[in-house]
């Protein structure tokens, strides 16, 4: 201990600071969601003096928030399914079959993930309007799937590449067609990769804003982030209801991060960090 703060106190102190920095803004939003409107107009009190569920009631009773929640859920699940299905099919030959130009293809996939969404949203809008898909789930599922495909392919290719090469050969000898090798051997074995990809794709779709903003028009397909961004309120901003909506959309995220933290880390770092 060389003067100043003892080293063994320094670590916990820093950890607490980091935790406060990460969590306080979220906690403040939660607090806000339980404050009656009167308490939102002044500070103090910091904590709600008379906590209320009024804001939660309003967004469900007086606004079509349940519609919006259903839209978000359907779109996120459908996107996850589609991206995983298409992505795992693509990852298999990229990881295992002798195809020329695999490296180039993976490079292009990685490049595609770098497109600014705003660049494609204009032409996509035109196509979607022509096809009559505006303001439908389809518009969002298709665009979300396409934008999460590069990440999915990247994660799953890396996972499958780590499986021993002999497993594929053995399955071929055992009488599998390439499809059977894929379905009976590779798919079950890359379950951790599928989980990681599924979680990241779900989170992407659940939180995506630009496509959802552009391709939806009404509550028929509007997702939660758009609903929060375009919160109705002619004269004053309804902070309490917005906070309640924020809390609701964050709860699944919170649960996913809590339960699958390790998968998320694995998915984000696969390929980028290697031993």
């Amino acid at each position: 201990m060389n003067g100043g703060l003892p080293r063994r106190l320094l670590l916990p102190l820093c950890v607490i600071l980091v935790l406060l920095w990460s969590l306080l803004p979220i906690l403040w939003q939660v607090t806000t969601s339980f404050k009656p409107n009167s308490e939102l107009l002044s500070l103090p009190p910091l904590m709600p003096a008379s906590p209320t569920f009024e804001h939660y009631r309003v967004i469900f009773d007086e606004q079509p928030f349940h519609h919006v929640l259903v839209n978000s859920t359907v779109v996120a699940f459908a996107t996850t399914l589609a991206a995983l299905g298409i992505g795992s099919l693509a990852a298999f030959p990229l990881a295992r079959l002798p195809i020329r130009g695999k490296g180039t293809f993976l490079g292009i996939v990685l490049g595609a993930s770098m497109f600014p969404a705003i660049v494609t949203v204009g032409p996509l809008f035109v196509i979607i309007r022509e096809l009559g898909l505006r303001d439908t789930w389809w518009a969002l599922v298709i665009s979300h799937t396409s934008f999460s495909l590069p990440l999915t392919i990247w994660i799953l290719t890396n996972f499958m590449r780590e499986l021993p090469e002999d497993l594929y050969r053995a399955s071929r000898i055992d009488g599998c067609t390439p499809w059977q090798s894929f379905y009976h051997v590779f798919l079950p074995l890359c379950r951790p990769g599928l989980a990681a990809a599924a979680i990241l794709v779900f989170l992407f779709s659940w939180t995506e804003f630009l496509f959802a903003l552009t391709f939806t028009a009404t509550e028929a397909s509007r997702t939660v982030p758009v609903a929060i961004a375009l919160f109705p309120g002619l004269h004053e901003i309804r902070w309490g209801e917005m906070a309640a909506a924020s809390v609701i959309v964050t709860i699944p995220v919170f649960l996913i991060v809590g339960a699958f933290h390790k998968h998320i880390v694995r998915g984000l770092t696969v390929g980028a960090v290697k031993g």
């Binding site: 050969r169 053995a170 071929r172 067609t177 051997v185």
Partner: peptide, 19 residues
């Protein structure tokens, strides 16, 4: 293709399906 050749193979790594 391998499945139509009526052969079986034992690998150095055994290549057992871990799942």
């Amino acid at each position: 293709s391998p499945k139509d050749r009526d052969i079986a193979m034992v690998f150095q790594s055994y290549a057992l399906y871990p799942h």
